[in-house]
């Protein structure tokens, strides 16, 4: 066979893989609020950005923050968002406009565990619009992962094949085309007002939580957080850090560990010149806040939406109104 024909066959093969892959991505990967987030930071300008983990996604209402501070606020927290992801999300946001303030929601567990395949970890890359930041993010994160994460994103959603019909129907609807959130209005959880609203659910609550282990420090998490700090400094962005409250029951059970984490990160942030508030620390009050397990969906500290709104008001007051004074 001539080389020309072989090259043509190779190109045809690659195109066939692309076509099948595109179809599987379309049919198996459900619509996610991460798409809405990516669209918003690429098209709108924000004064305040919130980065962090699922605690932040459940517990910080940008709408309440906006009402309190008068600053346009966006919650970019995601389950499985490590400092490396947060750094590139901030860079992506800065391609459109540079915010005045970034609030980093700190879960110490993300600084002592390896970056795993959990939460929305692969969504960020998949939904990220094609940009310079996406290329950088690919080289910094996706390239290190199993090649199926980048080449076949449907790999993590292959169990969805029974729902393919519904997924395709949603993607062909107006809501999807307009980056609407109707698809995420479920009974226990909904994406509205820019954050993930948990509704109180009675019954057993998951007790497992990832605790801070100083000896298990994840070097990458610290390295990328420090990159985030210097990026903010370079861009003139004020960086604030916050640890969300956990239920009283969790504090009673793991009080010593929470205290160790507080001592470590207070010192760490002090060294970096970053203002830090830890709402599990004694004396760090939240007005009208129910800190019993009833107000949370688990011991780890994922809040119900009413408490999230109460907490967001306090956060706005502590970080922004104190400064006005």
């Amino acid at each position: 066979m001539h080389s020309f024909k072989k090259i043509l066959l190779l190109i045809a093969g690659v195109l066939a893989v692309f076509a099948v892959n595109f179809g599987l991505n379309y049919g198996l990967i459900p619509y996610s609020y991460v798409r809405i987030m990516m669209h918003q930071i690429k098209t709108q300008e924000y004064d305040t950005l919130i980065l962090g983990t699922s605690h932040g996604l459940n517990g910080i209402s940008p709408k309440v923050m906006e009402e309190k501070t008068g600053k346009k606020t966006m919650n970019l927290c995601l389950g499985g968002e490590y400092p490396r992801d947060a750094y590139y999300l901030l860079k992506l946001a800065c391609e459109k406009s540079i915010p005045e303030v970034v609030v980093y929601e700190l879960d110490p567990g993300y600084f002592c565990t390896p970056e795993g395949q959990r939460g929305d970890f692969n969504r960020i890359f998949y939904e990220m619009p094609l940009s310079r930041t996406k290329v950088e993010y690919f080289l910094a994160k996706e390239a290190e992962l199993d090649f199926r994460a980048a080449l076949f994103p449907w790999f993590y959603y292959r169990n969805q094949f029974r729902n393919a019909k519904e997924i395709i129907a949603v993607k062909q609807g107006e809501d999807y085309k307009n980056y609407g959130a109707e698809a995420f209005q479920n009974e226990g959880q909904s994406y509205a007002d820019g954050f993930l609203r948990n509704t109180p659910v009675p019954g057993m609550k998951q007790e497992e939580l990832t605790l801070w282990e100083e000896d298990e420090r994840n070097k990458d998490s610290f390295q990328y957080f420090e990159k985030l700090v210097s990026f903010c400094r370079k861009q003139g962005i004020e960086l604030l850090a916050v640890t969300m409250p956990v239920p009283r029951e969790a504090l009673e059970k793991y009080g010593e560990n929470f205290q160790q984490a507080d001592e470590f990160f207070s010192e760490y942030f002090k060294g970096l010149g970053v203002e830090y508030k830890n709402y599990n620390r004694k004396g760090q009050e939240i007005k009208d806040f129910d800190d019993s397990l009833n107000a949370f969906t688990d011991y780890e500290g994922h809040m119900n939406f009413q408490q999230a709104e109460v907490f967001s008001a306090q956060l706005a007051e502590d970080f922004f109104e104190e400064k006005k004074e």
Partner: peptide, 17 residues
């Protein structure tokens, strides 16, 4: 071509992380 494509797609379809 079919064997290559099939083997390639089986990796994400049936493989575990």
């Amino acid at each position: 071509g079919a064997v290559y494509l099939g083997l390639l797609l089986l990796l994400p379809a049936l493989g575990q992380p």
